[in-house]
Design a protein around this nucleic acid. Structure first.
Length: 552
RNA sequence: GCCCCGAUAGCUCAACAGGAUAGAGCAUCUGCCUUCUAAGCAGAGGGUUGCAGGUUCGAGUCCUGCUCGGGGUACCA
C-alpha cells in the first residue's frame, strides 16, 4: 500500500502547520483543519491564526501571513494557499492531487477508505435486545438498523465484530404472555373467557393458542401454569422477530439469555464479590448497592424484599461482566433513551468489581414517535397499539426503512409519519442514491456494448480538467474522512448526508458531460471517474445495509 | 422538584470540535428529454435557528434563566 496516499489531505495540512509552528517554537495548539462550506474558500481551511491571536498578541491577519510565508515551497498536493479576513488560511488541492485521489479509489476499489484502526481487535455490539413478548415495533427498527450499521462501520475499519441480542424469557412479562396465551386458548376451546386488560392483546397470541390447540387439543384446558404456553409463545414470537430482522438485513451472531446467568451462578457470584468489597448493605430487608460510590447515580436495590428476586440491574451487571471476560477490545451497548438512568449503575457495578469500563461505549438513541396523519400513536406492546416493523417493511421495503432510520442523528427524536412515508415512497431520497448508482451501471454496460474495456487502467486521467470532474474527485476523497468520522462518532447518519452530496455531484456531472459520446481518450478517463463514484456509492450503501441496484 | 435529549424554511431533517453568505429533500412556482436511465438537472419563493440575557474577534453550536415536546427519576425491564 502506498503509505503517502493513504494519508488524509486534511492530516497533511495539519502536519504542515505543526511543522511551521514548531519552527516558531509554538506548541500545544490543537490545530483544526476543516472543509469550508463555501467552495470559494478552498478544499480545506484553518482558523489557526484566529486562535493564536490572543496568545501571540498579534492580529490574526498578520499571523496568517507569517504562517503562509513560512511555506517556502508549496507541497505538490496543494495548488494555492491564501489568507482571508478575518484570519483564515485556505488551502486548495492541486488537480494532480485530486487525480491521485481518483487513482487511489480505482486501485483500492471496495477497500477505498478502509483503515486498520480495528485490525486484530474484537468488538461486541449489543442491540435490539427486546424480550420475546411480541413482534418488533417501528421503535425497535431504529435500534436494529442503527446497531447493524455501526457494526458495519466497525467492520469497515477492520474490527472483528459480533452482534449480540440479550433477552430475558423468565420475568413477569413472560408469565403474563403465557397467561394471555392460555386465555386465547380457552377462547378457542369455546369458553367464555375475558382477556384481562393488562394482558397482551395482540393478534399473534391467537396464532400461538391455535398452534397449541392443534398440538394438544383440549388437554391443557385447566392447566394455566403449564410451561407450554410460555414456551410456545416465546418460540413463535422469537421466530417472527428473527424473520423480521433478517428481512431488514440484520443478523445476530449470538442470542444471550439472562437465564444462563442464574444457572451458571454468575448472578450469585456478583453478589458475593460485591459483598466482599463492602459495596452492599441491607435496608428494609432489601439488598442495596452503593452505586454512588462508584460513579453511579445513587444507591440502588439489587435484591428485592417484597418478592424474592433480583432487580434488572443485578443480572445486567453479571451480563456485562461476561462481555468483559469474553475479551473484547470494544463493547458497544445501544439502548433507547429510556435506559439513560440505568446504565450508570451497571457501569458502577463493574467498577465495584474492579473492572475498567473505559472500553464500554453506551449509545442512547431517542425514540420514534409514530404519527398518522398528524396524530400521535402511543405505542404499547401490551395493548397492541403499535405498528410492527414487519408491516413497515411490507409497505416501504427494506431499503427505504433502513435509510429513513439512518438519516437522522440518534439524538434527534424521530417523527415517523406513516401517511407521509407511504406517499413519499416514490420520492424517497434513498432512490436518489440508488439511481445514481444504477445510472453509472448503465453507462458501464453501454461502454461494454461499444467495445470499451471498463477495467482499462491506462486511461489518461490528466484529461479530467473540468470543474465538475475535479469536484467529484474531491468528494470521492472526502469519503475517507467521513468514514473516520462515522467511526469516531458512531453516527452512521454522516454517511447518508455524504452520499447525498456525492450523488448530487454525480447527477450534475451527468447532465453537463457525456461519458460515452466524448472523444475516445476523454471518454476512457471519464469512464474511470464514474466507475470510482459507483464504487464509493456501493461501498457507502453497503455500510448502510442498502442495496445498490445495477438497474432501476 | 431534580436529571437526560430535543426545538432550525409550510413539513421531515443537515450544519463534523464555536467560524466566513444556516443547507437538503418533500410541498409551491418556472424552464430543460431526437443524444450514456427525466427516480434527473437548472432556477424562484420560503428563516429574528423556541424566548430573554450573557461569554467573544465571531454563537444554530458554549453559559444562565424561561416556554414547549419526549424520556427518566421504582424493590418495572
Amino acid at each position: 500500500m502506498n503509505k503517502k496516499r493513504s494519508f488524509l489531505d486534511m492530516e497533511k495540512i495539519r502536519n504542515l502547520l505543526y511543522e511551521i509552528l514548531k519552527s516558531k517554537s509554538i506548541d500545544s495548539v490543537d490545530i483544526r483543519v476543516e472543509r469550508p462550506k463555501n467552495p470559494e474558500h478552498g478544499n480545506f481551511s484553518t482558523n489557526l491564526p484566529l486562535l493564536l491571536s490572543k496568545r501571540l498578541k498579534k492580529g490574526p491577519l498578520e499571523i496568517a501571513r507569517e504562517i503562509v510565508s513560512s511555506i517556502d515551497i508549496l507541497p505538490p498536493f496543494l495548488s494555492k494557499v491564501e489568507v482571508q479576513p478575518p484570519g483564515f488560511i485556505n488551502f486548495f488541492l492541486s488537480p494532480r492531487e485530486l487525480r491521485n485521489i481518483l487513482k487511489e479509489a480505482l486501485e483500492k476499489g471496495e477497500d477505498f477508505g478502509k483503515t486498520n484502526i480495528g485490525k486484530s481487535k474484537k468488538a461486541l455490539v449489543e442491540f435490539v435486545s427486546a424480550n420475546p413478548t411480541g413482534p418488533l415495533t417501528v421503535g425497535h427498527g431504529r435500534q436494529a438498523v442503527l446497531g447493524d450499521s455501526i457494526a458495519r462501520i466497525l467492520e469497515f475499519h477492520g474490527y472483528n465484530v459480533e452482534r449480540e441480542y440479550y433477552y430475558n424469557d423468565a420475568g413477569r412479562q413472560m408469565r403474563i404472555l403465557g397467561y394471555s396465551t392460555y386465555v386465547r386458548y380457552r377462547q378457542i376451546l369455546g369458553y367464555n373467557e375475558l382477556m384481562p386488560e393488562d394482558y397482551y392483546q395482540g393478534e399473534y397470541i391467537f396464532d400461538v393458542a391455535k398452534k397449541i390447540f392443534e398440538e394438544y387439543g383440549d388437554s391443557l384446558k385447566d392447566d394455566k401454569e403449564n410451561p407450554v404456553f410460555v414456551e410456545m409463545a416465546e418460540r413463535m414470537v422469537f421466530s417472527e422477530i428473527r424473520n423480521t430482522l433478517k428481512r431488514l438485513g440484520v443478523e445476530f451472531d449470538s442470542f444471550y439469555n439472562e437465564k444462563d446467568l442464574y444457572e451458571k451462578g454468575s448472578v450469585n457470584s456478583v453478589i458475593e464479590r460485591l459483598k466482599e468489597k463492602g459495596a452492599l448493605y441491607e435496608k428494609d430487608g432489601a439488598l442495596w448497592f452503593k452505586a454512588g460510590d462508584y460513579g453511579g447515580t445513587g444507591d440502588k436495590v439489587l435484591w428485592k424484599s417484597v418478592v424474592d428476586e433480583a432487580t434488572y440491574r443485578l443480572p445486567d451487571i453479571a451480563y456485562h461482566e461476561t462481555k468483559i471476560k469474553r475479551g473484547y477490545d470494544l463493547i458497544i451497548d445501544i439502548f433507547g433513551a429510556d435506559h439513560h438512568a440505568t446504565y450508570p449503575d451497571v457501569l458502577a457495578g463493574l467498577r465495584a468489581l474492579g473492572y475498567d469500563t473505559d472500553n464500554i461505549v453506551v449509545l442512547l438513541h431517542q425514540f420514534v414517535t409514530l404519527v398518522e396523519g398528524g396524530r400521535k400513536i402511543k405505542m404499547s406492546t401490551r395493548k397492541a397499539t403499535y405498528v410492527t416493523l414487519s408491516e413497515l417493511i411490507d409497505e416501504l421495503g427494506k431499503d427505504v426503512v433502513r435509510y429513513f432510520f439512518l438519516m437522522r442523528n440518534m439524538n434527534s427524536h424521530l417523527n415517523f409519519d406513516l401517511k407521509l412515508a407511504r406517499t413519499e415512497g416514490e420520492e424517497n431520497p434513498v432512490y436518489y442514491l440508488q439511481y445514481a448508482h444504477a445510472r453509472i451501471a448503465s453507462i458501464l454496460r453501454n461502454a461494454v456494448l461499444r467495445g470499451m474495456d471498463t477495467e482499462d487502467c491506462t486511461a489518461n486521467l490528466d484529461l479530467l480538467n473540468e470543474r465538475e470532474s475535479l469536484k467529484l474527485m474531491d468528494i470521492i476523497g472526502e469519503f475517507k474522512e467521513i468514514m473516520q468520522l462515522c467511526l469516531k462518532s458512531y453516527e452512521p447518519h454522516h454517511l447518508t448526508t455524504y452520499l447525498q452530496k456525492l450523488a448530487t455531484e454525480f447527477h450534475k456531472f451527468y447532465t453537463v458531460h457525456r461519458v460515452l459520446g466524448a472523444e475516445i481518450e476523454l471518454s476512457k478517463a471519464r469512464l474511470q471517474l464514474v466507475k470510482a463514484v459507483k464504487n464509493v456509492l456501493k461501498s457507502g450503501l453497503g455500510i448502510l445495509g442498502i442495496t445498490a441496484p445495477e438497474q432501476m
